[in-house]
Amino acid sequence: MAAPPAPTVRGGRVGRRDDTRLALLFILPAGIGLVAFYFWPLLRGIWLSFTSWDLLSPAQFVGLDNYRAMAADPVFWNAVRVTLLYVVINIALQTAVALVIAVLMQRLSRSTLLRSLVLAPYLVSNVVAALVFLWILDFQLGIGNQVLEWIGLERIGFFTSEAWAIPTIAVVNVWRHMGYTALLIFAGLQAIPATTYEAARVDGASEVRTFFGITLPLLRPILGLVLIISVIGSFQVFDTVAVTTNGGPVDASRVLQLYIYDKAFGQFDFGYASALSVAMLLILVVVTFFQYRMTRAGQTDLN
């Protein structure tokens, strides 16, 4: 029998081998999930975008036909425009409101009750929130319009006029999401060292000056990530629209997701719907890339 190897070496080798196996074992369930429910559908979706498929008969390869049709489809381009309009209104308002709420939460009150209240709308499901606002803002019976009339203004077709549909839906979603976004930003604020604020106070800086001079620059990476997440979510708006306007009036709120859904499950044109989905994926990739670059979300100024 050969001399036993040095205990340290043996221990090291054994340890490394065990780690790899164990790691693979741990990754396996998540890995299977990722491949089965993420990569495979993604690849299949991309493949389907080159086919004509109605679910019931076999898919037929049609090359770039779906993409050619898409380029010439006015409803698609309208959907892109409407979705962008929604994202701009939704994100601009939501981020501004959430930022104010978060700063107020940090600078004025640390009450847990208040924080819970701010988050409350987020606990309401999208569909329920949409239904409640549909009733509140109903042209004829909604209390919102009754109030408008009492104070001497004209009734507004919030969900039934082309000009108001998208802004209304955007604001309803701001109401639901602002608390959640505020909480994310609030977490970022906690990471800013209290000493910087103390220094600012010693220097006699006003609250406004402190906000623009310290809070905003130091919050940038968090704000960048929050923006990336909320913009992706915003692009995928669907349930609020499906419940309140179903794309109407005419095509005024026919956002991309709704058009994809209509094509797939309303008309069983899964090939075209897949092509639309790929287009949306590409738009998101480009938008996210530029956001990441512009906000330099990967770097912090805290060091």
Binding site: Q140, G157, F159, T160, S161, G248
Partner: peptide, 15 residues
């Protein structure tokens, strides 16, 4: 009929 006032406008009835 909507303009004449004999039927509700789209704004009132929606989808």
């Amino acid at each position: 009929l909507v303009e004449k006032g004999y039927m509700a406008p789209y704004e009132e009835v929606g989808t």
